[in-house]
Write a protein that binds this DNA or RNA. Sequence first.
DNA 1: CGCTATTTGGAGAAGATGCTCTAGAATGGT
DNA 2: ACCATTCTAGAGCATCTTCTCCAAATAGCG
Lengths: 200, 200
Amino acid sequence: MGRPRTYDDRVLFDAAKAVLRERGLRGLDVRAVCHAAGVPSGVVYNRFPSREALLAETWLVTVAGFQEAFLASLAEGDLPRTAAFVVDWARAHPGDAGLLLVHRVEDFIGTGDAERSKRATDLRRRLSLGFARAAKRTFPSLAAVDAVERIVFAVVRIPEAAVRPYLVRGAPIPASVAKLVNDALRGIVDGAFPADHARV
Amino acid sequence: MGRPRTYDDRVLFDAAKAVLRERGLRGLDVRAVCHAAGVPSGVVYNRFPSREALLAETWLVTVAGFQEAFLASLAEGDLPRTAAFVVDWARAHPGDAGLLLVHRVEDFIGTGDAERSKRATDLRRRLSLGFARAAKRTFPSLAAVDAVERIVFAVVRIPEAAVRPYLVRGAPIPASVAKLVNDALRGIVDGAFPADHARV
DNA sequence: CGCTATTTGGAGAAGATGCTCTAGAATGGT
DNA sequence: ACCATTCTAGAGCATCTTCTCCAAATAGCG
């Protein structure tokens, strides 16, 4: 069965996240990752065909870890709660969250090898499905496209906006952002039902 | 008085923005900028001491162009209008807006030469002042820190969140985001006055 | 027109970065 | 014990990137 691995792939992933936080996207080169991981460069190229593949894999593994819990929350049907979940997750996993900010799933679809592209497509499909379902249930009166746009804005863009400034500067995320996000969510949910505005 | 300049600095700034949009932060090297600008590299280093200085200058000039109108809008005291202004500005100047996303003023304070750092500090000071004033007037019942946090979230983070996904993929920003931002703003403004919730 | 000042144009040095390659180490199977 | 297989370790090559440097170009001035 050959020599057993001394290093888990996770060591490389974690090192990549650490380098990203400390030196930014531009400083995220293979040498820096290897140094941070305490690993010779041969290890990287034994497992990944290229720097790009290593970073893509790091990203994909990280989203996958986020997505399951996210979709579960989304399926429960409470938008403000899902937005709060995203904020909490970022607070608990700042390294992962910081990494997610620098790419989009689309960046890995149609690039790299077919297997990676397929996985990215799959992640994307699941997300789309979750959003579509939540959209139909939460905003039944809206056109499908508008409802999805509103859902994504509510549970992705808004939490991301609240959390991003802290992540990029490597600072802890204060608890106070939760209320801001919650307040914004109220406006977004209410805004979908124009009739309600008469009350105010 | 020596040979007159063939190229305006703006050519370099515009080229940098174009390269950023087309090849991302990682592809933003001096060669690419020179090629996009149709300028030999000697021109860049005749005017800027380093690549970093060129990009910093590009960023600072771009914010300065945005900030004046932004602060004027903020001084008018209508938060949703200011948020809408930011969205409109990004729609009208996608190149500039895309550039603003990739740095923060703080990145240029205490780095580079003293003059640059001073200018960045000045930009920052004016912003802080504008936010503080708006905070005091809009949310008089909140603690100063909380009020400022809420203002920034409303007129910077939210519009940025609405607009960013389109900017990063180089796509035009749809008009529909205006309503989303406006709805979110309603929640953020109302959320500062807990007493009002009794009505709903 | 010579002289000084400034910019252009671009070749190429110095260093950083992605990646290859191979000797050797560590395992299971026979 | 020996082999086949897989991984580690890191030196080193090829390329890319930043930046330097200087001859040629273009202006105003006495």
